[in-house]
């Protein structure tokens, strides 16, 4: 089976975000990383390739973005992906990204397409599902477990109020979340060296439309200082929660 992991390139999660003129994200001094959920997806893909009795023949990664996303893609290659594909287009919105991804991967014979459930920048949770609909293949969302046995795919997904074991035939999109892999892998030195020689193909952008437009950004107002209560006087806290915050 061939797996492809869709990777988002996002600011490091510790970034203090800033905007220039309130209209665009200020990229100055920002460290870029693989979107955390996509990184977990990649980790699981590598585990499957290594452990499932040679059921997985290759793990590819694909990203939509300019040349500046390539360091993030090299990280994925260093973690173990076999090859990478960059769609040379600006990631304007979820719909446009999904459409670019769909064009780039549709005829490549991938059996399993993995996508993180959310990106840590625009938090839409839309790309994986849109991609599946554009490719007209099944999608399973909120996946926290993915196992292969022969040609069967066993999936655990979280529903709103429990868990389900689901099976689905390939090709499909799994939209993965926390739990899919224990911890994201860190690239070793050997992987970093090897990554330099692995193929990173650049695919020209397809003509796609965006359905949304970000017009304005705003930082939240600073929080008023925390009201401190003495540890020996928790009754005062209860009083504040009841009568001031009115949440009890």
């Amino acid at each position: 089976m061939k797996i492809v992991v869709c990777l988002g390139n996002v600011p490091d999660t510790t970034t203090k975000v800033k905007f220039s003129d309130g209209a665009a994200f200020d990229k100055t001094g920002v460290q870029w990383i693989i979107n955390p959920w996509d990184e977990l997806a990649l980790t699981r893909a590598m585990e499957l390739k290594e452990d499932a009795g040679n059921l997985v023949s290759s793990v590819s990664v694909v990203t939509v973005g300019g040349k500046d996303v390539e360091p993030t893609m090299r990280k994925a290659l260093a973690i173990g992906a076999d090859d990478a594909m960059r769609v040379d287009a600006e990631a304007t919105d979820a719909y446009a990204v999904a459409a670019q991804l769909a064009e780039a991967i549709k005829d490549k014979g991938f059996d399993i397409i993995l996508s993180g459930i959310e990106s840590s920048d625009y938090n839409g949770s839309m790309v994986g599902g849109m991609l599946a609909e554009m490719l007209d293949i099944p999608s399973v969302s909120a996946v926290s477990g993915l196992n292969l046995s022969g040609s069967d795919v066993d999936i655990t997904r979280d529903i709103d109020g429990g868990k389900e074991q689901v099976s689905v035939s390939t090709p499909f999109v799994a939209i993965v979340q926390k739990g899919i892999a224990k911890e994201a892998r860190i690239a070793a030195m050997r992987g970093i060296m090897m990554a330099r020689k692995k193929p990173l193909a650049v695919v020209p952008a397809a003509e796609v439309e965006s359905l949304t437009e970000f017009v304005e950004f705003e930082l939240p107002a600073p929080k008023p200082p925390c009201k401190m209560v003495d540890a020996d006087n928790v009754a005062e806290l209860v009083d504040l929660l009841q009568n001031e915050a009115k949440v009890l």
Binding site: A94, Y95, A98, I117, N123, G124, S125, M126, V127, G128, G129, M130, A132, E133, M134, S139, S141, A142, R157, D158, I159, D160, I175, L211, T212
Partner: peptide, 22 residues
């Protein structure tokens, strides 16, 4: 929620509808 995140993106493509998410 999990269900909405599963359906909304597919519906977006089917209806050519922009999503305001979350």
């Amino acid at each position: 929620n999990n269900t909405g995140k599963a359906i909304a993106p597919r519906l977006s493509v089917k209806l050519n509808a922009a999503v305001g998410a979350g």
